[in-house]
Amino acid sequence: MLARVAVILSIWLAGFGMAQAQVAESDSMIFTPSKYLLLDKGLQFRITKAINSMYNFDFPTAERDYAVLAIQYPNHPLPEFLVALGYWWRIEVDVTNEKYDATFVKYLDRAISKAEVMFDADEENKEAAFFLAAGYGFQARLYSERKSWTKAAWAGRNALKYMDLSRGEEEFNPELLLGDALFNYFSQWIPENYPLLKPIMALFPKGNKKLGLQQLEQVASNAFYTRVEAQYFLFRLYASEEKEPLKALQISEYLISKFPNNPYFHRSYARHLYAVGRWTEAVQQSKEILNRIDAKQTGYESNSGRYAAFYIAQFNERMGDRVESKKYYLKTLSFGEESESQESGYYLHSLLQLGKFATEEKNKPLAKQYFKEVKKYAKRKHPAHQEARDYIKKNKL
């Protein structure tokens, strides 16, 4: 258990990556020399387009520019790390899909190897420590998703070690603040939500959720490399833990305006629109997601389709259009089966609603089949399992 908690914390602390490269107008053409490549303003200006292309899921454009960067700086970890980050975002769209894992780890290993050479030559090199922390942190994130706890714990410990060693360079502070922000938030959140882990969490410094959110906002506004990562965590926290759907919507609306072809931001935007009651807009965005899936646009796949189809089904049910509602609940099931997400809430709720429709249409065999599927995929304590049992009993199915 301790190893697992350490992994979780290491992911939050050190699993940060290069985020959106935005340069303010006032200093976009002012290039100041730096002993660290990451702090080179000229480089930041040159790679802005490539990084923005990556976040917009235009990977070929981004990787062509990264290849040029690799020629210019053959011994630096930055080019390989940026390529790895692109594969991380391919994974992020559907973390159950493992087809990009090997390539992602390969590029991270290359970045880590180059950073180790830099660090061995100079243990005061904060940039080398920064890349080692980020590289191992991303490995910890992936291995924890794959439930490879031993690998995740090893990578996580390395990430934390190098994150601490990367401190001390004032110019790096906006980037490193992301780790402090996530630690402050989650080291308080864990014992609040998992009381059994309080004794273990007592081994870590005391956190402060309010401060963590403030720090995330600061990173989201001021950092160069970790900006989007902070925005990503912010909208997820505001949507779920903080119950601030309007703030979550504001961030996702900004992100989709900057990266209109990013499927993760797209489906999050649709979700947040639906959460605040802007249903017509949510349906409009959801239909666009489904159109992009049909067009086989990069990154748009069954996982995003499950979200989109569900919002459309719910909207039509609210509008009293059962035919369309049923059509999109069935699409939700189809997408859920394709992505093997039968235990997800959207999949289970779709089964419940289809079971209720079938009951009202006097089709008891079909209704029983839907409720049987709910009980098959939902854990017994899951609300969907309880609702299915109650509905079967009430309607004598």
Rank of each mutant, 00 (worst) to 15 (best):
156 G>P: 15
119 F>T: 00
101 D>P: 00
121 A>I: 00
139 Q>G: 10
140 A>I: 02
103 T>S: 12
101 D>G: 00
109 D>I: 08
119 F>C: 00
126 K>Y: 11
109 D>W: 05
133 A>I: 03
170 E>M: 12
115 A>L: 10
142 L>D: 02
158 N>P: 05
157 R>E: 07
164 D>S: 11
157 R>F: 08
139 Q>P: 11
172 F>C: 01
168 G>C: 04
149 W>E: 08
123 E>G: 05
138 F>L: 15
138 F>E: 08
116 E>W: 03
118 M>L: 13
137 G>F: 02
130 F>K: 06
137 G>P: 11
137 G>Q: 06
116 E>P: 01
126 K>T: 08
103 T>H: 09
157 R>H: 06
172 F>Y: 08
106 K>L: 13
128 A>Y: 06
139 Q>Y: 12
157 R>M: 09
148 S>C: 04
106 K>N: 13
169 E>M: 02
165 L>S: 05
166 S>D: 02
159 A>L: 07
128 A>P: 01
116 E>M: 11
153 A>Q: 12
153 A>E: 14
113 S>L: 12
128 A>F: 07
117 V>N: 05
163 M>S: 10
143 Y>V: 07
154 W>S: 10
104 F>M: 11
125 N>H: 03
118 M>F: 06
130 F>H: 05
166 S>R: 07
127 E>Y: 03
144 S>H: 05
132 L>A: 10
120 D>V: 00
150 T>Y: 09
103 T>L: 15
116 E>A: 04
111 A>N: 04
162 Y>V: 01
118 M>C: 04
153 A>T: 08
149 W>Q: 05
172 F>K: 02
116 E>G: 01
139 Q>N: 14
123 E>Y: 00
160 L>V: 13
140 A>T: 07
144 S>T: 04
147 K>P: 00
148 S>A: 10
109 D>E: 11
154 W>H: 10
125 N>M: 03
113 S>F: 10
153 A>L: 15
163 M>P: 02
129 A>R: 12
104 F>P: 00
138 F>K: 12
170 E>R: 15
117 V>I: 13
133 A>K: 08
111 A>P: 02
102 A>Q: 15
150 T>P: 01
150 T>I: 13
113 S>Q: 15
121 A>T: 00
149 W>A: 08
116 E>F: 03
130 F>C: 04
112 I>M: 12
120 D>P: 00
136 Y>S: 12
137 G>T: 05
133 A>R: 09
124 E>T: 12
147 K>S: 05
169 E>F: 03
167 R>L: 03
